[in-house]
Design a protein around this nucleic acid. Structure first.
Lengths: 335, 335
DNA sequence: CTGAAAGCGCTTACAG
DNA sequence: CTGAAAGCGCTTACAG
C-alpha cells in the first residue's frame, strides 16, 4: 500500500521552484508579467509534481466562477433523455465548463435536494428537465443563478424555457389517421403530472374537434409511463367490445410497449400507430406507423445556449420561451 | 433586474442568530453539544436566509471529503452507455454522493483533460469507460484516488476492472449459427482500438476454430462504429461475389445499421444476424436474429460498488477484475 | 456548551 | 517583475 499521497499544493510548487506562491499563481493564470526564466522554473516544478490546481479552493474567492453547470434530468436510461443530455453536453463542454449531473427519478423531493446540493457546490447555472409542473425551488430569482427549463413549461416560474411543439405535433399525427378515415383513435400516455402528455392529449382533442370527430373517453388511457405499462394498457384496449381502429402513443417508450401488444395480433388491416418521438428501427417495422418527431439533442443544445447567454451577459433581457417544431416525419401506412 | 444577490454565508447566519460562526457550524454538522434553544435559533436563521453551505469551501480542509465522484464515458447518446450510466448513478446517488460527468468522445486527449480537471475539483473516486486501451493517466496510484474501469481492461494499469464476457458471448452466438450449418459468417465491428470489439472478434475466431470451420478475411469488417458505417459495411459485404450466409455484429448500434441493409433485400432464407447487445423491438423483428445479451446497468452498478468499497475501506486489498456473464438470450431463427 | 484563533489552498489588492 | 499580507467560507484544535 502506498502512503495516502497528499496532493501537491501551490506552496509545494513554489517551494520547489524557489519562488513565492504568488508567482506560481500568476504563471498558472496565464503567466503575464512574469520573467520567462521564472515562468519556466515554475512550469517544470508543476509538471514534476504533477500539480493540479484545487479548483474548489480557487472558486471560494468572490468573483471567481466555478465553471460548473448543474444538469438535472428525470431519467437517464430512457434514450430520449440521453439524447437531450448529449445536446447539453456538447454545448456546455465546448464552453470549457463541467457538468454536475443529477437524476431526479421524477421525484420532486429528490429534485429539491439535488438543487440545494448543487447550489452548495457553486454551480454557475442550472438546466432542468423538471419532474413536475410546479416548482418554486427552480426559480432563478430564488436560486440566484440562471436556470433553463427543458421539455416542460413551469407554471409561475420566471425562467428561460425550451420545449417541443407537443400540441402541434400530436395534432398533425392524429389528423393523419383521421383523414385516412379512422374514427376510434386511442390515446395512450401518462397522467396529469406529466405535462408533455397533457399537451399531447390537447393536440389529440384539437384534431378531433377540427375534424368533427367525437372523442370516446374509454379510448383514453393515461396510465402508461413505460414499455410494460403501455403494453398492458393496449392489451386492455384490444379487449374492448369495440376496440380502437388506430393508436396514438405519447412517447417512443410507450410506442414500443404498444407494438409489443399490437404486432402479434395484427390481421389484415391492423390499426395504425401514431408515435410521438421516433425510435430505432421504426423504418424497418412492417406494422403501419406514423412517426411524429422532433430533435431531442436540439432541445438540450437550446437549453444550454440559453443558459450560457444568461451566464455570460449581465443584462440578458427578459426570459424567453422557445418552442421547437415537431412534425410528422415518416409514414408507413399503405395507400 | 435584481441585484447580483450574494449568497448568504455562515457568518450571515451567525449574525442573524446572534451566535458565533462556530455554533452555526456545529448545528450544520449535526448539532451535537449545542443547547437546543441556540440550535433552534440557528436553524430558523438558516431557513430564513435560505442558507446553503458552500461545499467547496468546506472541502478544502484536509480530511474533508468532497462527496463527489467523477464519471467519464465515451458517448452518452448511445443507449448502451446511458444504461451503464444509469447503473452507476443508482449506486453513487444512494451513497449520498454526486456525479461530475465527462464525455470523452473516445478522444484520449480530451479524456486526459477531463481527468485533470476532475482531480482539480477534488473528486474522491473516478469511474471510466476508457476511450482507448492504453492510459497511464488513469492509474489510481498516479491520481491518488480509487479508480474503477468499466467495459474494457486496460493494459498495465492497476485498477479495479469490470467487463463483460465478450469472448464467451461472441463464441456462443457464433456457435449457434455454425451449428445451424452456416459457413460464411461475417464479422462487423470496430477496429483494434476498441478492445470490446477485439475480444468479440477473438470469440468469433475461437468458435470457428472449435468447429473446424475456416475464417475468411474478406468477411471481416473492422470499420463499423455506428449505425451509418455498419450499414455501409454490410452493403459492401452483400455485394461480394460470394456474400456471407450469416452476420455477427459487435454492438447493437451496428446491428441496427446491418438490419437496415439486410432487411430490405431479405429473400427466402435470409442470412441470420447475431447481435451482441439486445435492442428495442428485437423481439418484434421478422428478420432471423440471435441476441447475445448482458446486463449493462449491472456493469455500471458493479463499477460503482467496486469504487465505493475502495473509497470507504483504507485497506481494500488487491485490485479485482470482474467479468460479467454474457449469453445467448433470444433466438428467432426458424427450425 | 460556546467562541476566538489559526489554517485549508487559493487570489486580490497593495508595496516595493 | 515579485512578494508579504489579508481574506474567501468553512472547520479543527484549543481555551474557557
Amino acid at each position: 500500500m502506498e502512503t495516502p499521497a497528499r496532493r501537491p499544493t501551490l506552496r509545494d510548487v513554489a517551494r520547489r521552484a524557489g519562488v513565492s506562491t504568488m508567482t506560481v499563481s500568476r504563471v498558472l493564470n496565464g503567466g503575464e508579467n512574469v520573467r520567462p526564466a521564472l515562468r519556466r522554473k515554475v512550469e517544470s516544478a508543476a509538471a514534476e509534481l504533477d500539480y493540479r490546481r484545487n479548483e474548489n479552493a480557487r472558486s471560494i474567492r468572490p468573483g471567481q466562477r466555478s465553471r460548473l453547470v448543474g444538469v438535472i434530468i428525470t431519467n437517464i436510461s430512457n434514450p430520449y433523455y440521453a439524447w437531450v443530455m448529449s445536446g447539453i453536453e456538447g454545448v456546455i463542454g465546448r464552453s470549457g465548463r463541467r457538468i454536475l449531473v443529477g437524476i431526479s427519478h421524477s421525484d420532486v423531493e429528490l429534485e429539491k435536494e439535488l438543487v440545494r446540493d448543487m447550489i452548495g457546490r457553486q454551480i454557475e447555472g442550472l438546466i432542468v428537465v423538471p419532474s413536475d409542473s410546479g416548482g418554486a425551488h427552480l426559480s432563478p430569482a430564488r436560486l440566484g443563478i440562471p436556470v433553463a427549463i427543458a421539455s416542460r413549461p413551469l407554471a409561475g416560474i420566471e425562467a428561460d424555457t425550451v420545449m417541443v411543439d407537443d400540441v402541434g405535433g400530436a395534432f398533425e399525427g392524429i389528423k393523419h389517421v383521421l383523414d385516412a378515415g379512422r374514427r376510434r383513435v386511442a390515446f395512450v400516455g401518462a397522467g396529469e403530472s406529466v405535462s408533455t402528455s397533457v399537451r399531447r392529449l390537447a393536440g389529440y382533442r384539437l384534431a378531433h374537434e377540427r375534424a368533427g370527430v367525437p372523442v370516446f373517453d374509454e379510448l383514453i388511457r393515461r396510465d402508461a409511463n413505460d414499455v410494460a405499462s403501455a403494453e398492458t394498457a393496449v392489451r386492455q384496449l384490444l379487449a374492448l367490445p369495440e376496440p380502437p381502429d388506430a393508436y396514438f402513443t405519447a412517447t417512443n417508450r410507450i410506442a414500443v410497449g404498444a407494438l409489443r401488444a399490437l404486432q402479434p395480433v395484427a390481421g389484415e388491416d391492423p390499426p395504425p400507430l401514431v408515435s410521438f418521438d421516433d425510435f430505432d428501427l421504426a423504418g424497418l417495422m412492417s406494422y403501419p406507423l406514423v412517426i411524429v418527431d422532433h430533435d431531442a439533442p436540439a432541445l438540450g443544445r437550446t437549453a444550454a445556449q440559453m443558459l450560457l447567454r444568461r451566464m455570460d451577459d449581465p443584462e440578458p433581457g427578459p426570459y424567453v420561451q422557445v418552442t421547437l417544431p415537431s412534425a410528422v416525419k415518416r409514414v408507413t401506412l399503405k395507400g
